[in-house]
Design a protein around this nucleic acid. Structure first.
Length: 512
DNA sequence: TTCCGACAGTGGGGTCGCAAT
DNA sequence: ATTGCGACCCCACTATCGGAA
């Protein structure tokens, strides 16, 4: 298949807003693909590279190359050339990659170039990623969408499923089963505004600690232990403590779901930054482990002793978990019968926060284990802090926010009355707010930049955030975690905005 | 007809590690 | 030695489509 055809379909998919039309277009192309094209066409149309990341970013793509007049590249040739670029390593590799990339771009038409740039930077923006590609795949092969989704969860990737489906048809889906040693996509939680509302929604449920660490899926088959992240990367070698803990358990074959977290001597959680730094360390693992030991803490079991537990209700999976994993290696929890016990659930959240943890996850006792965001049977609840801050500058948005001032620079009042930047946010804005702030901030502009405007510090915004973390980037040495706009405070003047002093006082122990 | 679940998009900050400077 | 860049961790929220109620 020519890249030209694929790029054109991608553009058509981007041009329509109807999801049904998007899946129809994708299905048509999948049907036309030759079997050998499939491992490339499927991920490309899901907006991803089959190789994963290639170390090619905006920097390498920087210099534009004159496009070819006539399409000639096939998708397989593109894939082979990108694989070759990814394989270049060592001193001078950036230069060599740039040259190879330039040659590839020169062979591409303008439309093909646009598609390739999107693919390489992860910004395909066609309004169709894995989920709709799976839908299109189902349509192309006559398989039931739910069966395709389940196979994707079990395989951990769409490609594997696509290859089997297009080669053998819907009957191929039956072969995808939970296998120890092969990671499955993890079940994710939605957000609820309070424990009470979560319990009202779910009825009988478990309320569990939410630990602020790194999600892990741990597979053990005899002496072989593998540890995977949320995105199914293998991080076994970085976490010897987790392997050791898995080998201590009495059963020899299982798949567990949990979190790794660094705890201090008293068992209180260290900062997320410390846990993430430890888990990210690959080069000298022994040293990193000595400095910041981590503990696995489990909350679910997907398989034990060859039995697939995915479809069991959570209550029954937890019974299996409690049989396999000793209490200190499980998250704390309470079980409530329903809204009549929401006071107990709220008390558990308070106690969890008191112990220094992030919040709770409220889980339906009936729900099977199911990947992706489908179904809201897990609801997380975290406390939200708010501040009134001053807008210092605003950056132009991209994509659907092109032409709108989007990303706000936020400042708090310093000791001497100056304003101290604490971070940025683009979250929480409605289209109406975007339009309003574009106009208002343009009026307040004092300096124009390529990226946007510095403005007279007159507008006050109410900001919600999850907590404070250390920063080397911002002058106060701290920044807000997950800041988002709640509303503009036109009733407040900048002199009434919050101060750095009160912010630091509200989060003792964070500032350097 | 209205409601709501699922999806994509829009980026935030940090840390690590490699390559370039 | 320091800096720049990319990959991965953590993530909130809105708009929109289309099926469910």
């Amino acid at each position: 298949m020519l890249l030209h055809r694929l790029a054109r379909v991608s553009r058509e998919v981007a041009a329509t807003s109807a999801r049904s039309r998007k899946t129809a277009l994708l299905a048509e192309l999948f049907r036309a693909a030759e079997p050998e094209d499939v491992p490339v066409v499927i991920p490309y149309l899901a907006g991803r590279l089959p190789q994963g990341r290639l170390g090619i970013g905006w920097k390498l793509l920087g210099t534009p190359v004159p496009p070819a007049d006539e399409p000639s590249l096939t998708v397989r040739e593109v894939d082979a050339r990108l694989t070759a670029i990814g394989a270049v390593t060592g001193t001078g590799s950036q230069t060599a990659r740039g040259r190879l990339l330039g040659a590839l771009m020169a062979a591409a038409t303008e439309e093909e170039q646009r598609f390739l740039v999107g693919l390489l930077t992860g910004e395909v923006r066609q309004g169709a990623l894995d989920a709709l590609a799976a839908e299109g795949l189902a349509a192309a092969t006559g398989a039931a969408p739910a069966d395709v989704r389940r196979a994707v969860m079990l395989a951990g990737s769409l490609q594997t499923v696509a290859r089997a489906l297009l080669a053998e048809g819907p009957s191929a889906l039956g072969a995808f089963r939970l296998t120890v040693g092969r990671p499955v996509l993890p079940m994710l939680a939605h957000t609820a505004s309070s424990v009470t509302s979560a319990v009202e929604k779910l009825g009988a449920c478990a309320v569990e600690e939410k630990l602020d660490g790194i999600r892990v899926q741990v597979h053990r088959d005899g002496e072989v232990v593998r540890v995977y992240t949320r995105t199914l990367d293998d991080i076994t070698d970085r976490l010897p403590e987790v392997s050791a803990a898995a080998r201590e358990l009495t059963q020899g074959r299982f798949v567990l779901d949990g979190e790794v977290i660094a705890l201090d001597e008293e068992g209180r959680p260290r900062s997320f930054q410390e846990t993430a730094g430890r888990v990210g360390s690959r080069v000298d693992v022994d040293r990193a482990a000595a400095a910041v030991p981590v503990s696995p803490v489990f909350f679910d079991v997907l398989s034990v002793d060859g039995r697939d537990l995915l479809d069991l209700p959570f209550a029954e999976r937890h019974t299996e978990l409690a049989r396999l994993v000793p209490e200190p290696l499980r998250v704390r929890r309470v079980v409530v019968t329903g809204p009549e016990e929401s006071a107990r659930a709220e008390a558990f959240l308070a106690a969890t926060l008191e112990r220094g943890h992030e919040g709770v996850v409220v889980k339906s006792l009936d729900a099977p284990y199911s990947a992706g965001r489908r179904g809201a049977s897990w609801l997380k609840v975290k406390p939200v802090h708010t501040l009134d801050l001053v807008v210092l500058a605003a950056e132009w948005g991209h994509g659907r926010r092109t032409g709108r001032l989007s990303n706000l620079h936020l400042g708090a009042r310093g000791e001497d009355g100056s304003l101290v930047m604490l971070g940025k946010t683009f979250k929480g804005m409605t289209d109406t707010m975007l339009a309003w702030q574009t106009e208002r901030l343009s009026e307040l502009a004092v300096e124009e930049h390529r990226w946007g405007f510095t403005v007279r510090p007159e507008l006050v915004v109410e900001i919600a955030y999850d907590g404070l973390q250390r920063s080397t980037r911002y002058p106060a040495g701290v920044t807000l975690r997950f800041a988002r706009v709640l509303r503009y405070r036109e009733d407040k003047r900048p002199e009434e905005a919050d101060t750095v002093e009160t912010l630091l006082a509200a989060h003792p122990g964070v500032a350097p």
